[in-house]
């Protein structure tokens, strides 16, 4: 694309080498991450190429506070959100919405039980055999369904933290959020997932009354 004139000093050969190296190193993770959200091969592949192209253009803005990988995932995240903005019904994209909505539906808001679990939200006893591969397979299935049910921002923080095992600092970089907001978002995501798994997957033991 015609920006060649302004790039005289920036060794374009090296730039393109970079993009090819990124494809080599990070292609799979970018693709896997895209696929989770767009759910078809072609769109996921397109997002990967768009991300690498955007990375090429923005290379000079890569300041090195994060690794190349987190930087690229940050670009990809924005592309995914654009994709959803264009294609999907209303989703909350602004973490301010998520954070400011601080009604916590799991706990009593007032009265003598203030801050305690609401009766219908109390965690049940789980019967899970972590060593059983069949259960693990089931778990994985339901976990992914439950992740899909999350608000997209919550799903991104959870996926990056637990499935891509990224540390908090990098996630803050990737999603441009503060550490405090990240904490709240991870908390919300985990809470909703735990509840979703309990309702849909888990065989629970009936509770002896408290």
């Amino acid at each position: 694309m015609g920006s060649g004139m302004t790039e005289l000093n920036s060794k374009p050969e090296k730039k393109i080498l970079n993009a090819e190296r990124w494809l080599e190193l990070y292609g799979d993770i970018l693709y896997r991450y895209s696929f989770r959200y767009v759910k078809d091969k072609q769109s996921a592949e397109d997002l990967v190429s768009e991300t690498l192209l955007a990375g090429l253009k923005a290379q000079s803005s890569f300041a090195g506070q994060s690794t190349e990988q987190t930087w690229l995932i940050g670009i990809l995240n924005n592309k995914i959100m654009d994709h959803f903005r264009k294609s999907k019904r209303e989703i909350s994209f602004d973490e301010a919405d998520i954070i400011s909505n601080n009604v916590d539906e799991d706990f009593a808001q007032s009265g003598p039980d203030l801050g305690n679990w609401k009766p219908n939200r109390r965690p049940a006893e789980w019967m899970v055999d972590a060593a059983d591969p069949v259960e693990l397979k089931e778990f994985w299935l339901y976990l992914n369904k439950c992740i899909e049910g999350l608000d997209i921002r919550l799903s991104m923080v959870f996926v990056l933290r637990e499935l891509e095992e990224m540390d908090s600092k990098n996630i803050c970089n990737v999603l441009s959020i503060s550490p405090t907001n990240l904490r709240v978002m991870l908390y919300r995501a985990r809470k909703q997932l735990r509840f979703c798994l309990e309702k849909n997957w888990i065989r629970t033991l009936p509770d002896d009354k408290e």
Binding site: M5, K15, E20, D28, R32, E45, W140
Partner: peptide
């Protein structure tokens, strides 16, 4: 397990690589 191990196919890789090349500003 595909979900965990999902990878770009070789064809996809090549498609993306050639796209990158065709957008390469060095040829201008």
């Amino acid at each position: 397990s595909t979900e965990v191990n999902r990878r770009l196919s070789e064809e996809s890789r090549q498609r993306i690589a050639s796209l990158l090349k065709s957008n390469d500003i060095s040829h201008s």
